[in-house]
Design a protein around this nucleic acid. Structure first.
Lengths: 108, 108
DNA sequence: CAGAATCCTGCCGGATACTG
DNA sequence: CAGTATCCGGCAGGATTCTG
């Protein structure tokens, strides 16, 4: 009954929790959405993020299917990330959260 | 320009990140939504959660305005938590995330 | 039964240096 | 420039105990 509902809903959230629950993930998604595609620029645009964390996030978001990675065989090497369809959806959902947050903040 | 957008959007997400980004928060919200209102039962329903963490989450969710706390002056003491309007909204948003997650999981 | 207080540990994230 | 490897400090969260 209830307990089972709880478990399955928790499980289906845990995956995404690992992705969006951790620091910087949302910032990265939104930066990409604004058209910032390359790691170097991302690192400079997202104030405070480190190389290591950015790479980790890009990889995880890509593995999970929210970002898509395009590698260009050039010199110097170039890589670009774009949102997948799922990524777009998630960004929309997150903006709902932000709206809710502001609504709450204002009503205090 | 872009950088400013990034900062403000990040800021407005950070508050909620602190609330929903951490482990167990979502489980607690959903348990309450299923009508499990009292700490004792919550602790038994949410498999794996500890007393300390449950209290912390309940407090934070309440402080933030997602839960409402009702104290009954009885012996033994009784406390019940319910979702606020904002809490209901957030649960709806989270279920969108879960749907998205399953969609992604299935398309692999 | 609600929930505060302590103590401990693992892991996340930050800084830095290195390779292709 | 993209991405990985290493080292380290802080903090979230787990177990337990205690009190009103």
């Amino acid at each position: 009954m209830d307990e089972k509902k709880l478990k399955s809903s928790r499980k289906s959230y845990e995956r995404l929790e690992k992705v969006i629950g951790c620091k910087w993930s949302v910032s990265v998604l939104e930066a990409v959405r604004l058209g910032i595609k390359r790691p170097g620029i991302l690192e400079r645009s997202i104030e405070g993020i480190s190389t290591k964390v950015l790479s980790e996030r890009l990889r995880r978001l890509t593995d999970y299917g929210l970002l898509e990675k395009h590698i260009f065989a050039e010199v110097p090497p170039r890589t670009e990330y774009t949102l997948t369809e799922a990524g777009e959806s998630l960004v929309l959902i997150i903006s709902q959260i932000q709206e809710l947050d502001e609504k709450i903040a204002n009503s205090k």
